[in-house]
Amino acid sequence: MRMKSGSVKSKVGKGALAAVLLAFSVMFLYPMYWMINLSFKDKIQASSDPYGLPTEFHLENYTAAWGKIDIPQVMLNSIIYTAGACILCLALSVMVAYALTRMRMKHSDLLRMYFTIGMIIPIAVLMIPVYRLVVDLGLKNTYWALILPYAAFNMASSILMICAFFRNIPVELEEAAAIDGCGVYRAFVKIMLPLVKPAIVTQMVMVYIFVWNEFSLASVIAMGEQMRTVTIALYAFFSAFDMTHWGVIGAAVTLTTLPIIVIYTLGCRQIEGAMSVSAGLK
């Protein structure tokens, strides 16, 4: 697999590989850099010289964006939605997965297939019925309006992955617990949960990314000013102020994205690990 090093041909090849990969890296990162760059420019420089470095730092773009989007409130909303959906989804999924793989139930394969349906339905297709359901249940204008559907739609992949983990745990562990007189609930919490912790953490990362960026359901259910997610607040900001001042646009984008960038930079490796595990399931 590794080419013989040293030959001129392979060195050129390696250089070309690296160049292509780095070019793509720049392509992935450039738009964000560009937005940050624009955020420091005044209206004139943003439209006449959008690519050069800012000649002076116009921090008033940030105060303008901060004044028009209630950033602490929408951040808090997004955090509540995300944390709520993550916790609820994983708690229920881990219980279902445990029942399906360990409890020797009839029809457990059929049930697992039933949950798999959640993976092949795009959430946006069910926008209308979920919206109606939320209204009928009287959940509109509460955080549950998004937490419940998000948790439900993410259960499919979580259950499949945690099932894969449970299947690899030897039965003897629980048999020993049963002989020692340990009940099923205690055995679940004390023995089984710690063993599938990697799967839970991994899947939490995936749910987090999904919920934080989800647009379609949030745009019909959580449009109210007090209930908006960051994504929706940004969208509403762009459409309400038909913006032509790209300095302020850049500032709004930067302000709302910065927390994600920080988390991403710290947790990039975990995300990659999460992807490899979640994709390893059959």
Binding site: W212, Y235, I249, I260
Partner: peptide, 10 residues
């Protein structure tokens, strides 16, 4: 990891 609102605007 960027939200669609950000990507759309970019």
């Amino acid at each position: 990891i960027l939200s669609v609102a950000v990507i759309g605007k970019m």
